[in-house]
Nucleic acid binder design. Structure first.
Lengths: 240, 240
DNA sequence: CGTGCCAGGTGCCCT
DNA sequence: AGGGCACTTGGCACG
């Protein structure tokens, strides 16, 4: 534990917990509160959640998260720009607010089981992600033959009236090819998108331009196959 | 603190932390770990994040969350169906896995500052949300005149070849009206959606059917206004 | 700031 | 499971 850290609390009184949270906020520390609380949010919508055991987390950047026992998403959250910590009616009250848009998240603790905190170091915590659509694009541009033998990639994000085509190129016989990329299993929307691009390119290039459409993704759903077939387009299986 | 709760830990040895996490998991407790860790995810994509101070939360339903100091979203997460807790090379190792799709999230702690836990009660923690699109729809159906005087709502989610229209009705002079609802500030996509519905209804009803389109939302962006005007549709400001 | 689009989107409901 | 769509979507890039 670093010099400035504070030991965790067990079943603190509201005032003690309030001081703990204020201290954590000043030190730009992570702070977690485990206890029974109810929650009110007012902003883009309005919500209320009755008393239950929850995990409330305060991040150094004033993000406040309220987690119930189930599910990966918080029940409520707020990227706040101000936090009030008060004791009212013998309860700890966290009021996080934000302007533009105006939002308020208020957590009222009936009881707190445990509180913990840790000052965050300045280490870069960046996540490196691979296997995204951007990676798939790189892969296709680096080795266009992965799409099909003889394919030449001429442009990425080529603009059309219908929006940018992921990859534009020509096949071994010189026909224009629009490639739509998806990093995960593709749905019908990807096939529709491809059709829009192909149509736009046909108009864009020449009235009678022959443009092929290829959907490149690890896999696609059955209905997507049908849409592709209907529009005369193709599917190529490729992992990012 | 309930009988079964365990006191929080301060700078525990890996083995002690491992026992704490395993115990929390068995009791279906919330568990939070504050410390320095690195993270690896493999599943829909692949990601890696180097050592940094993070907040790791384990929920009773085996959801594992990894939060860095910034932002409301976790850096990594997994709604797991199995969790391995091990000590390897003097480090606590959390390995959460899931099948279908196959995913794995692995958190390795170099050091742990604090650990806390709380068994979750069975209280219903449901959030009541209002101000959603569903609420706006209720409001319009209950009082159609809010859209405009004399408007009659005839159907919600009326099917068209272009998808379901939020509200379908007729105005005071008997003309068909398609209403598209948005609970928040509407963007151009909402106007496009409305146009698709109106076009579909014109074909659906009669070749020469006169169909009006109205976008109902608290507000809309400038470009959205332009799209509406171009297509001859209208905007009505209404809060959910 | 508005617009467009990806995301490990998630969640809900329906077929 | 697939399909469609809302969501306090969040996030980034770009005009």
């Amino acid at each position: 534990m670093s010099d400035t850290d504070r030991p965790p609390l067990v079943a603190p009184a509201p005032a003690e917990a309030a001081a703990y949270v204020r201290d954590a906020r000043e030190r730009r520390a992570f702070c977690t509160l485990l206890g029974r609380c109810h929650v009110a949010y007012d902003g883009r919508t309005t919500s209320h959640a009755g008393p239950a055991d929850r995990l409330v987390a305060l991040k150094p950047d004033l993000t406040l998260l309220v987690h119930a026992a189930d599910g990966p998403k918080p029940q409520n959250w707020l990227a706040a720009d101000a936090l009030d910590v008060d004791v009212a009616d013998g309860a700890l009250l966290l009021t996080a607010t934000r302007e533009s848009p105006t939002e308020e998240l208020c957590v009222t603790f009936e009881s707190i089981e445990q509180a913990a905190a840790m000052a965050a170091d300045e280490t870069d915590a960046t996540v490196e992600i691979s296997g995204t659509e951007a990676d798939l694009k790189e892969r296709v541009l680096a080795d266009p033959a992965l799409v099909e033998p003889g394919f030449r990639a001429l442009a990425a994000e080529r603009d059309t009236p219908a929006g940018p085509v992921d990859v534009f190129g020509r096949d071994s016989s010189g026909r224009a090819v629009a490639v739509e990329l998806k990093a995960t299993r593709a749905g019908p929307d990807a096939a529709s998108q491809l059709s829009r691009y192909v149509d736009a390119l046909r108009r864009d290039l020449h009235a009678d331009a022959d443009v092929r459409g290829i959907l490149v993704a690890p896999s696609c759903t059955p209905r997507t196959r049908r849409v592709l077939a209907r529009d005369g387009h193709e599917f190529v299986s490729l992992e990012p």
